Simulated scan of single mutants.
Amino acid sequence: MTRLAAFQRVVSQYSDIADFLLVYIEEAHPSDGWVSSDAPYQIPKHRCLEDRLRAAQLMLTEVPGSNVVVDNMDNSSNAAYGAYFERLYIVRDETVVYQGGRGPEGYRISELRNWLDIHS
């Protein structure tokens, strides 16, 4: 959630040329697991879809007006896109045209912005 402000700025800047979607996946640092000391929320490991939906609601409060969907409990979106913990993608005409690195180290909002600048 710490990178959502930068993501929200990109959404605002490029909303006229792109649709943006956040996919909430399993919690990276659950409060009953490997806890991050700088986590803004204490979210336990999701035991059911309702847990995940509640956690996604917290994320939605950080990025109001954004489109947020939730991965299923089988984590099929996470597995398909290798998103664990966070990752940026651009999909055009059902084809992945940009795949950012895996977060947190490979998550670079500046790369996404550069791609959008070049291809818009």
Rank of each mutant, 00 (worst) to 15 (best):
L49E: 15
D74S: 10
F85W: 07
G103H: 14
P40K: 01
F85R: 09
E111T: 07
G33W: 02
L60Y: 08
R3D: 15
T2Y: 00
L21Y: 05
W34T: 07
V63Q: 03
V63D: 09
T95A: 00
I25V: 14
S31K: 04
G101F: 12
P30E: 09
E105N: 12
F20A: 07
E27F: 11
Y89F: 12
L21C: 10
G106S: 10
V23L: 02
R108L: 13
G33M: 12
A6Q: 12
V10A: 04
L4H: 06
V35M: 01
Y98F: 15
V70G: 08
N75L: 03
Y81H: 06
E94Y: 02
V70H: 01
L4C: 01
R47G: 05
D19L: 04
S120E: 09
Q42S: 12
V35T: 05
I43P: 03
D19R: 13
E27W: 08
T61L: 02
E50F: 04
Y84C: 00
A83H: 07
G65P: 13
A55K: 02
M59W: 00
Y107I: 12
I17T: 15
M59G: 01
Q57M: 05
R108C: 13
S66D: 13
I43N: 03
R92G: 02
E50A: 10
H46R: 01
K45W: 04
A56Q: 08
Y98A: 04
V97M: 09
R47E: 05
D32E: 08
A18M: 08
L49S: 09
N67C: 11
E50T: 00
R108N: 10
D16C: 07
S66L: 07
M1Q: 01
G65F: 02
M59I: 06
Q99E: 13
R108Q: 13
G106L: 13
D19F: 01
A28P: 04
S36A: 14
E27S: 12
S66F: 10
A5C: 05
F85P: 15
H29V: 03
